[in-house]
Computed example of a mutant assay.
Amino acid sequence: MKWRLPVLMADREIDYKELAKVTGMHPGTISKLKNNLPDRLELVTLMKLCKALKCQPGDLLAYIPGEGDDL
């Protein structure tokens, strides 16, 4: 699975502080989400990110066959 949040943030020219302000989330949380694929993602968090970045959930995640198949 590939986490595409950093790509979307770069495409939209939004940094973690601005995204935190728009979503109402803590800047530290946004920074962690930006730098690491979360093991678990709350629906409300996903909705906030999609709304702020004007994207669909599938824009944030990309499935890569064979990667992580041992889970």
Rank of each mutant, 00 (worst) to 15 (best):
C50A: 07
L19N: 02
Q56A: 08
Y63S: 06
P65A: 03
G24L: 11
M9N: 01
P57A: 02
K51H: 05
I30R: 02
A10I: 03
G68P: 09
K48F: 01
L5W: 02
L41Y: 11
D70L: 14
E13G: 15
N36F: 08
M47W: 09
K54Q: 10
R12H: 06
W3Y: 02
V7M: 14
D69S: 14
G28P: 05
T45H: 10
L33P: 03
T29F: 11
D11T: 04
P6N: 10
I30T: 05
G58E: 07
I30D: 04
T45V: 12
K51A: 01
K34G: 05
P65V: 03
G28Y: 12
N35D: 14
L5G: 01
M47E: 15
P27A: 12
K54C: 03
D39Q: 13
L43A: 13
W3D: 00
D15T: 09
K17Y: 14
A62G: 01
K51P: 00
L33N: 04
E18N: 08
K34R: 15
I30V: 15
L71A: 08
D15S: 07
L5Y: 01
L33W: 02
M25G: 09
K34E: 10
V44S: 15
L46I: 08
G58I: 05
I30E: 04
E13R: 15
M9I: 04
G28C: 09
K48G: 00
E42H: 14
L41K: 13
L43H: 13
L61A: 06
M25P: 11
T29N: 14
D70G: 08
S31H: 14
L41N: 08
K51W: 00
P65N: 03
D70C: 11
C55W: 01
C55R: 00
E18M: 05
N35G: 14
T45M: 09
W3V: 01
A52W: 00
T23I: 10
K54F: 03
V44I: 13
K2W: 10
M9G: 02
L43P: 06
N36D: 12
L33E: 00
L49Y: 00
L37K: 13
M47L: 09
M1H: 09
L41V: 11
N35P: 06
N36Q: 09
N35Q: 10
Y63Q: 05
C55G: 00
K21F: 09
K32R: 14
A52I: 00
L61M: 11
A62L: 07
E18K: 13
A62F: 03
E42Y: 12
C50N: 04
A62T: 07
N35Y: 07
M9C: 08
I14N: 08
E13F: 13
I64G: 04
K54R: 03
E42W: 07
P27N: 09
I14R: 14
E67M: 07
S31M: 13
C55D: 00
M47D: 15
A20E: 15
Y63P: 01
K21V: 05
G66N: 04
L41D: 10
V7A: 12
C50F: 07
A20M: 15
D69G: 13
L41E: 09
L5M: 05
L5T: 02
A62Y: 03
G66E: 10
G24P: 06
E13I: 12
G68M: 12
L71M: 10
T23M: 10
K34Y: 12
M9L: 11
G58D: 07
G68I: 11
W3L: 01
M47F: 08
L33G: 03
G66C: 05
V22W: 06
I14E: 05
V7D: 12
